[in-house]
């Protein structure tokens, strides 16, 4: 009654399933190699000085990346001040009022802005800010904000759409104006998820290097004001990595470890917040 599956078909089946498994393993391998090297080479470079000192010249002992860490924090703060409210406003608009063709256009534009190469964002900010005011933390923060806005907008929209419609209707039924329903009922109800979206956007821009190269430039010392060239962790890693001096390269690994830990911890915490949904 049942014809047995031919040997050739069975072999092909086994071979292809094996290849798929091998490919899946191969895809995960780089994660381990990169994590391992960053951890192993980075740990040796971390010390108290690393977090408290500015860089010293090649061949000298000591020094750290304190100015880069502070610079990155400042520019991330500036980027958040502009990028989070703007992005969230756009996201709320798309979720609460976005219907029809115009909303589709808006969504498309937001997606396109997400996919603009970050170095092009750097050129844009160079043309708008740096040409007139020079390299500064403001310019770097603005570049990072432009990258944050569409990410925050999209995540906000996705999250608010999950709020059941009857919650809005309940609020409106009580006679609350729509803006109060959104601000007092819809947003607070998704607080944890919204925070998650914002944190992920922050993690994403924290590692951005290209848009800072010619907006914030870099600085071997602490900057005295926000309108001066400012150091950042990623740009400092880049400069150290191509310096050719072993002690600076070691510092670069230390910086990479700090950056990767920051990004991974945010990702892990947000995943935990979202209820351990790994798929």
């Amino acid at each position: 009654m049942f014809e047995r599956i031919s040997l050739r078909r069975r072999l092909v089946n086994q071979l292809m399933l094996g290849l798929l498994f091998a490919g899946a393993i191969l895809a995960a391998v780089p994660f381990f190699f990169i994590s391992w090297y960053v951890l192993q080479k980075g740990l040796g470079a971390l010390s108290v000085e690393f977090f408290t000192q500015t860089p010293v010249g090649p061949g000298q002992q000591g020094g750290g990346m304190a100015n880069a860490i502070v610079g990155s924090s400042i520019m991330l703060t500036l980027a958040s001040l502009l990028g989070i409210p703007w992005g969230m406003a756009a996201g709320i608009y798309l979720s609460e009022y976005g219907r029809g063709k115009t909303a589709q256009t808006l969504r498309f534009a937001v997606d396109l802005l997400t996919s603009v190469p970050s170095i092009v964002v750097g050129i844009f900010i160079y043309g708008v800010i740096v040409i007139h005011f020079g390299f500064s933390a403001y310019a770097g923060g603005a570049a990072l904000a432009v990258i944050m806005i569409p990410i925050v907008a999209r995540s906000t929209e996705e999250i608010l759409k999950l709020t059941p419609q009857h919650i809005r209707e309940a609020g409106l039924g009580l006679g609350l104006p729509r803006w109060r329903v959104i601000l007092r009922i819809v947003l607070p109800g998704s607080r944890a998820a919204l925070l998650t979206g914002v944190m992920l956007a922050l993690a994403r821009v924290a590692g951005e290097t290209a848009p800072l190269l010619f907006t914030a430039l870099g600085n071997q010392f602490f900057s005295h004001s926000l309108s001066e060239p400012t150091s950042s962790l990623p740009v400092q890693i880049y400069n150290f990595a191509k310096s050719g001096y072993p002690d600076m390269e070691a510092m670069a690994w230390g910086g990479a470890l700090v950056l990767v830990l920051f990004v991974f911890i945010i990702n892990l915490v947000t995943r935990a917040l979202m209820g351990m949904r790994w798929n």
Binding site: W253, A256, V260, V263
Partner: peptide, 27 residues
Amino acid sequence: IARPLGFFVEMLAAIPSIVYGLWGLFV
């Protein structure tokens, strides 16, 4: 298997470009 493996592949997307560069250059 799918959960952890999927997680590792997703985390590849979270690693900053500069870290890929550093690892690429020296490893």
